[in-house]
């Protein structure tokens, strides 16, 4: 059981969290976006082995945040509220 630090609620069991994708995967708006660019946004993932920057949501409080962690050792490196106003 991993412990994830919710920037709002503190360390909580992993089962309370839901993975939300790569951090920084900005959405391209508009119907004119080249389809390859749109497909990149929709589907392509960095999926790093090692340090990853990811979006997570703590389902109990409903808040999304950015977490940096190591995908091999599972060590958590940082967690920051989206927008940064509650940065841990």
């Amino acid at each position: 059981m991993q412990l994830f630090p919710c920037p709002f609620c503190g360390p909580r069991d992993e089962t309370e969290f839901h993975y939300g994708g790569d951090a920084g995967n900005a959405r391209p708006d508009g119907v004119d976006v080249p389809i390859e660019r749109w497909a990149d946004y929709l589907y392509l993932r960095t999926n790093p082995k090692g340090t990853a920057r990811e979006i997570w949501v703590h389902m109990n409080c409903g808040e999304f945040f950015v977490m940096e962690r190591d995908t091999v050792t599972h060590k958590v490196l940082s967690s920051t509220a989206l927008g940064g106003e509650h940065a841990a």
Binding site: G20, R27, V57, G62, E63, F64, L82, G83
Partner: peptide
């Protein structure tokens, strides 16, 4: 509910 929250926090702000 989760989708609404995600778009709200990501795109519209609290």
């Amino acid at each position: 509910h989760a989708r609404l929250e995600e778009w709200r926090q990501d795109r519209f702000g609290r």
